[in-house]
Every structure is written in structure tokens, then in C-alpha cells.
Design a protein around this nucleic acid. Structure first.
Length: 474
DNA sequence: TGAAATGTTGGGGCG
DNA sequence: ACGCCCCAACATTTC
């Protein structure tokens, strides 16, 4: 008797290589029915943002193409995951449904319900870990408590074995006798109405092939100089794998194996993979941290008034008057991505110089980053604010001019993303307000005209932030 | 993966 | 030769 069909429920694992759920379905030998379900209500308070939807659109297109090369295809649906999957099981007579776990609070709760339902209905429902090197609930310190400091967490993880990636090779993937109904990709309406995404396509190739290409290039090149060059945003010194990892177009095990295969010491780079693991570990144990500070005293932090939202808007648009900050915010808007050094600087600026709530920054990043990831975004913002795990101490306030001088010494990053300052001499590129009038005029810069004056004074803002943080300590 | 203030040291100009 | 001052360079402390 031929095996009954198995359903593969694709989520944030949009790949065929090293995909445990997909591999389990293939291994069963019967027809395989791949499906992706867009379930906004199932995401709780965090339905995917605009940039992520752009990415998802192209990634689904790419996965469908890969499956079609094997004589299969990707079914698309929109709505309640449980309902759609129940219907699909009935329609295909499937005997099994497999998926790779996600670790966000809303997803784990929903998946547990779905798994239990199918089990009691006699359908084999199994979930796998394809998203992380180490399942978050299996890592704890000697007291059985979650780690709250990165270094001991990662030191512990480095003693654990990492599974080698599983290679998938096939010419044909058996499908069902007739394919159930599917939405067409445009019907998911993932692309924006107004085309703010014009700059995305030139930089990004979403999908498994794009991910593999980027990893190959990074492993053959920049990984060797990662430690020395990663902090300079004008250089191509980082892997830029974050969106591919978020959507699971490549697995952390594949990244791990590729990094370990190089002659150079990859430990600084792998430490960044470690931060991703740590973020998921924390979100697992502290599921309300996307909204609530881990340190409770921060509930009474004296945030500044921004009645008309003009400070927030200036930050979002990259018009704060601090070139390094503005360059970062414009890179984000135009490409859906920002260099990590600059993320730390702009986050510190929003929270400490403007004293606006970190949740506003997290929401903006969520909507504009192609790599928006609930665990990473939450960790990053709470870390920057100083209200989270292993957090920056309250007195650690990045000075936007100094950060620019240190990490963009030639001003190339600013010139690229803030073109109205491009003709300023290097000496003034990070502090145009210090330039003499004739120098500004010669460079075509009109402060308060085509480029703003600083919206806050650095020294005064720093003093006010320190005062607010001192108040919190009592 | 912080910045600024304060302290220390030593070379050099100068009376 | 000596003391004094200035200041750069670096170290330490503080927020």
C-alpha cells in the first residue's frame, strides 16, 4: 500500500537544504504537500512589518520555483493556520504533518494546540528544531535558570555539540494525484501599495540560492577580516545574512559548518550567531519582553514629552542633524537593513538623547527591517536602553559625533547615505554645525535648509539622560 | 560593544 | 643648572 501524503508546513524555514521537517516528509516516501500559510492574527501583537512582507513575497516565489523544478509546488493560503491545515489534511488524506518550530511566544502557544489536535485525530504531527543551533528550552545554567549574561551563556553553548547540516538531493518530489486549491502569490498582497521598496531589489536576492551565494562569498572573503572590519559601516565587512537567517533560507547549522571549514578563526563572527541564539533563549524564558522591560524599575522611567511626535519623526526620517545617525536611518529606509554598529548608535540616540521609549524604536525597526526578528529586535532594544539582560549600563551613552569619527573616519558612509553633505570636507562631515559659513556654502549645505541643525544639543541631552537614569536608581 | 572628567607623567620652552 | 609652566599622552575615575 502506498504511503499516505505528508504535509510540510513551511514557516520561517523557507529552504530545502538542512530542513528537518521537509526531510522527514521526504523520508516517509509518499506524496509531499508543501504549504505556506500567512496568518497575521496568529502572530499576536507582531504581524509581519512592511519590509519583511516584501522579503517574504520574493522568498515564497523562490521556494515555489525550487519545488517546481522537482515537479512539486508550494501551496499558499491566508487565514487561521489551524483551520487551513485541518482542511488540507482532510482534502489530501494526509497521514502526517511536519514543521520546524518557531520560538516566538505566539507561535509556540498556537503550535502546541495544533499538534495536540492532530495527534488526537490520528494524524502524525511532529515538529523539529531547524531554526537554532541549540533549542532554547534545553539550555539553562547550573541552577536550572535561564542565563541572563551573554558570555557565560555562550561559553556554555560552545561546549555543546552542533548537528551537521543535512543535505537534500533529489530530481523529483512526489506530489498528490491532484493539487488542492492554492492562492496565487499576488493574492497574499505582500508587496507595498506605494513603492518604497525601489532600492531593495538591487541589494537583496531573497531565497535559498541568494542565501547560499552570500554565505559562500562571505566564507571565502570577509570572514577572514571580520574582527578587524566589522565595525566600519562603509566597508563590506559583515555577512549580511540576517534576513536569510530570519526567514530560514539558510540554517544556523549551515552557517556554522561553513565558518568552521575556513582556515581563519571564526570565533568573533560565530559570537554574533551566538547573540542570535541568546536572543531566542531570552525570549523563550521571558515571553513578555517584546513589550515590557526585563528590569521592572524601567516602568517608571521619565521619558521625554514628544507631543506632536516631531522628535520621533525626525529620527525615523534621518533628519536629526547628526550625520552618522541620519545616515543609518536612511540606509534602513532605503535598503531595509542597517549596519549593526549604526543600529547601536541610532538606538542609543532615540532612547538617551531624545529620551523616547524604546518600544517606539522597536516598532519602527519591526516595520522597516527586512531582517525584523522578534527575539533579536527585543534583545537589541532592551540592551541599548539598559533595561534588559546583559544590558548596557545606564551611563553608556554613545556620542554620535565620536562614533562617526571612530567608525566612519573618512566619512564615506555619511556621504553615501546623506548626499546633501557629500561635498563637505572630512573635518566637518560628522559635525557640519562646526563648519564656517563659507565652507558650508561652498559645499552647498544650508543648515536649517537642506540639512537640519542638531535637534538636540549633545552635551545637554547627555546630562539630562544621566539625570533621568539617576532618578531611576533610587 | 562609552564618554568625559580628572589625575599623572615627562619633555621642552623659557627666565 | 634649576624651577616653573604648558601641554600632549596616557591612565584612572566617574557618570
Amino acid at each position: 500500500m502506498p504511503a499516505r501524503a505528508s504535509i510540510v508546513w513551511f514557516r520561517q524555514d523557507l529552504r530545502l537544504q538542512d530542513n528537518p521537517a521537509f526531510q522527514a516528509a521526504v523520508g516517509r516516501g509518499g506524496p509531499v504537500v508543501p504549504i505556506y500559510v500567512l496568518d497575521d492574527a496568529g502572530e499576536g501583537r507582531w504581524p509581519m512589518g512592511g519590509a519583511s512582507r516584501w522579503w517574504l513575497h520574493h522568498s515564497l516565489e523562490s521556494l515555489d520555483l525550487s519545488l517546481r523544478r522537482l515537479g512539486s509546488r508550494l501551496l499558499l493560503a491566508r487565514g487561521d493556520s489551524g483551520e487551513i491545515l485541518r482542511h488540507l489534511v482532510r482534502r489530501t488524506g494526509a497521514g502526517a504533518i511536519y514543521w520546524n518550530r518557531r520560538h516566538e511566544p505566539s507561535a509556540t502557544a498556537r503550535d502546541a494546540t495544533i499538534e495536540a489536535e492532530f495527534a488526537s485525530a490520528g494524524v502524525e504531527a511532529r515538529s523539529f528544531n531547524g531554526e537554532l543551533l541549540h533549542a532554547p528550552h534545553l539550555v539553562a545554567n547550573r541552577q536550572g535558570r535561564p542565563y541572563q549574561v551573554f558570555t557565560p551563556y555562550w561559553r556554555h553553548c560552545l561546549t555543546l555539540p552542533v548537528e551537521p547540516p543535512v543535505r537534500f538531493r533529489a530530481f523529483r518530489l512526489p506530489g498528490p494525484p491532484t493539487w488542492p486549491k492554492s492562492l496565487d502569490l499576488p493574492e497574499l498582497r505582500l508587496l507595498p501599495g506605494t513603492r518604497w521598496d525601489s532600492g531593495f531589489g538591487a541589494l537583496w536576492k531573497p531565497g535559498e540560492a541568494g542565501a547560499a551565494g552570500r554565505l559562500r562569498r562571505f566564507a571565502a572573503g570577509a570572514i577572514g577580516t571580520y574582527a578587524a572590519r566589522r565595525n566600519f559601516p562603509a566597508l563590506d565587512g559583515t555577512s549580511m545574512l540576517s534576513p536569510f537567517l530570519h526567514f530560514g533560507e539558510i540554517s544556523p547549522r549551515q552557517v556554522w559548518a561553513a565558518a568552521k571549514a575556513q582556515k581563519v578563526d571564526p570565533s568573533v563572527f560565530l559570537g554574533e550567531i551566538g547573540w542570535r541564539e541568546f536572543a531566542h533563549h531570552l525570549l523563550h524564558y521571558f515571553p513578555d519582553t517584546p513589550e515590557v522591560p526585563l528590569r521592572p524599575e524601567f516602568a517608571r522611567f521619565p521619558w521625554a514629552e514628544d507631543r506632536k511626535g516631531s522628535l520621533l519623526r525626525a529620527w525615523q526620517k534621518g533628519r536629526t542633524g547628526y550625520p552618522f545617525v541620519d545616515a543609518g536611518m536612511r540606509q534602513l529606509w532605503q535598503t531595509g537593513w542597517m549596519h549593526n554598529r549604526v543600529r547601536m548608535v541610532v538606538a542609543s540616540f532615540l532612547v538617551k538623547h531624545l529620551r523616547l521609549p524604546w518600544q517606539l524604536g522597536a516598532a519602527w525597526f519591526w516595520d522597516t527591517l527586512v531582517d525584523a526578528d522578534l527575539a533579536n529586535n527585543t534583545l537589541g532594544w532592551q540592551w541599548s536602553t539598559g533595561c534588559g539582560a546583559d544590558a548596557a549600563p545606564y551611563f553608556r551613552i554613545f556620542a554620535p559625533v565620536l562614533q562617526g569619527l571612530k567608525f566612519d573616519p573618512d566619512g564615506d558612509y555619511v556621504r553615501r547615505w546623506v548626499p546633501e553633505l557629500a561635498r563637505l570636507p572630512q573635518r566637518y562631515i560628522h559635525s557640519p554645525w562646526e563648519a564656517p559659513g563659507p565652507v558650508l556654502a561652498a559645499a552647498g549645505v544650508a543648515l536649517g535648509g537642506n540639512y537640519p541643525r542638531p535637534i538636540v544639543d549633545h552635551a545637554a541631552a547627555r546630562a539630562a539622560a544621566l539625570k533621568a537614569f539617576r532618578q531611576l536608581r533610587r
